[in-house]
Design a protein around this nucleic acid. Structure first.
Length: 315
DNA sequence: ATTTGTGTTGAG
DNA sequence: TCAACACAAATG
């Protein structure tokens, strides 16, 4: 039935590219189509032909997913595979801007240029090699890296951010590692939190020997309470997880599915790890009593970040 | 057993 | 340059 592609047939909006791309996709394939034999075995009209994407740089994969690719110097550069067609299209957009410059033709980009955001992303792109950008795209970590880049340099125009150079008030500067919106099972009776593979491997690499038995990680929360979680890799589900100790965190913070947990790490030599959480976005303020009085902490870690270019602690 | 992504080709 | 298609290399 509907199994075949999700032919929304263009929702118009998709062709918002700057200049070209006025048409994208012939409205409808030649109805008459000249294709003499359409009926054949007719079992699955799908099994034979692949969907064919409406987006530039996007190609269908046999398993229903989407691949992104860009060409340079006569050869293809693979940008990875994605579940959603538009994700692949966005990956292409990112790549094409890094490869061909600011005003290359994209699938979406030319959205209301955020003036500021655009500049930040542009500098982010240029501060990385093509290979690095491609790598991020293939690993699906581009957005995280970009966000992190934005945070580290809040170097606006303000010449002096008074209040900061207090000399001794300089608390631990942290960098955001990643966030995860917890699933029902993360806060359920399985007593474990699955850490998305790409983040786990990047930030919490397990040593060869530790893979099976795992390690004990220490995290400090907003109230300076230290949490210890067993971190290991589960071969059965092939996933990285926080197990022992996790359920207590869920209980104390009263975490619910949809809430977001965030992991940070000190940028200093200590490499101290931090954990924080916030209630699901738009969750009309579900504030449980939470005896600990944590009531609501605005997730302000973002303000504590340091920028590599800002040197402060050098006594 | 699946999935990725490369080899290759033909069209634009 | 680009995507369609086939299928081998890579992964699980």
């Amino acid at each position: 039935m509907d199994g075949s592609c999700t032919d929304d047939q263009s929702t118009t909006t998709e062709t918002t590219s700057t200049v070209a791309a006025p048409v994208t996709t012939p409205p409808l394939i030649g109805s008459g189509g000249s294709v003499v034999l359409d009926l054949e075995g007719g079992l699955e009209a799908e099994s034979r032909k692949l969907p064919s994407s409406r987006f530039k740089g996007v190609v269908p994969q046999p398993n229903g997913r989407w691949g992104a690719q860009i060409y340079e110097k006569h050869q293809r550069v693979w940008l990875g595979t994605f579940n959603e067609e538009h994700e692949a299209a966005k990956a292409y957009d990112t790549a094409v801007q890094r490869f061909r410059g600011r005003d290359a033709v994209t699938n979406f980009k030319p959205l209301p240029a955020d003036t500021d955001e655009a500049g930040l992303e542009a500098s982010f792109l240029n501060s990385h090699s093509k290979a690095e950008i491609v790598d991020m795209l293939r690993k699906h970590t581009y957005n995280d890296e970009l966000e992190q880049s934005k945070r580290s340099c809040s170097l606006h125009k303000t010449p002096f951010t008074d209040g900061f150079r207090s000399g001794h008030q300089l608390v631990n500067a942290r960098e955001q590692l990643f966030e995860k919106t917890v699933t029902p099972s993360d806060v359920g009776k399985l007593n474990r939190l699955v850490i998305p593979k790409q983040h786990a491997e990047k930030h919490f690499p397990l040593q060869n020997g530790s893979t099976s038995k795992g390690v004990l990680l220490h995290f400090e929360d907003i109230g300076m309470k230290v949490w210890r979680f067993r971190y290991s890799y589960w071969n059965s589900s092939q996933s990285y997880v926080l197990t022992k100790g996790w359920s207590r965190f869920v209980k104390e913070k009263n975490l619910k599915a949809g809430d977001i947990v965030s992991f940070q790490r000190s940028t200093g030599p200590d490499k101290q790890l931090y954990i924080d959480w916030k209630v699901k976005n738009g969750s009309g303020g579900r504030q449980e009593k939470s005896e600990i009085g944590t009531s609501f902490h605005g997730y302000r870690v973002g303000l504590l970040f340091s920028c590599d270019e800002l040197i402060w602690g050098y006594d």
